[in-house]
Amino acid sequence: MEILASLVIAVLFSCGIYLVLRARTFQVALGLSLLSYGVNLFLFFTGRLITGAPPLAPGTAATADPLPQALVLTAIVIGFGMTAFVVALALRARGELGNDHVDGQGARR
């Protein structure tokens, strides 16, 4: 289970980093959202991978840590807002600069 979880995060991160390094704003925006998915999963898993446990329990019974869920909820909301902003800004850049290159210079030939 841990292996699978870390592999998922690794794949999300590597795809995200690859896309962020691309030259076009759409790919960069996609890369940023993949990165934020990776980060959100990572935050979620910092409470350890526990299934079927209550968030609060008396004594020393196994509990699922509720705090990472609260953190990840905040992070998701912020990440969603930021991604929406980046998409809007990328569209504006497409309009103002005349192309969707991140440097606004278009393909060089």
């Binding site: 960069v28 940023l32 902003f85 980046v86 990328a90 504006r92 850049a93 600069l97 991140v102 606004g104």
Partner: peptide
């Protein structure tokens, strides 16, 4: 501004 802003945001 848009170009510099885009880099800053990313």
């Amino acid at each position: 501004r848009i170009r510099a802003g885009l880099h800053y945001v990313v």
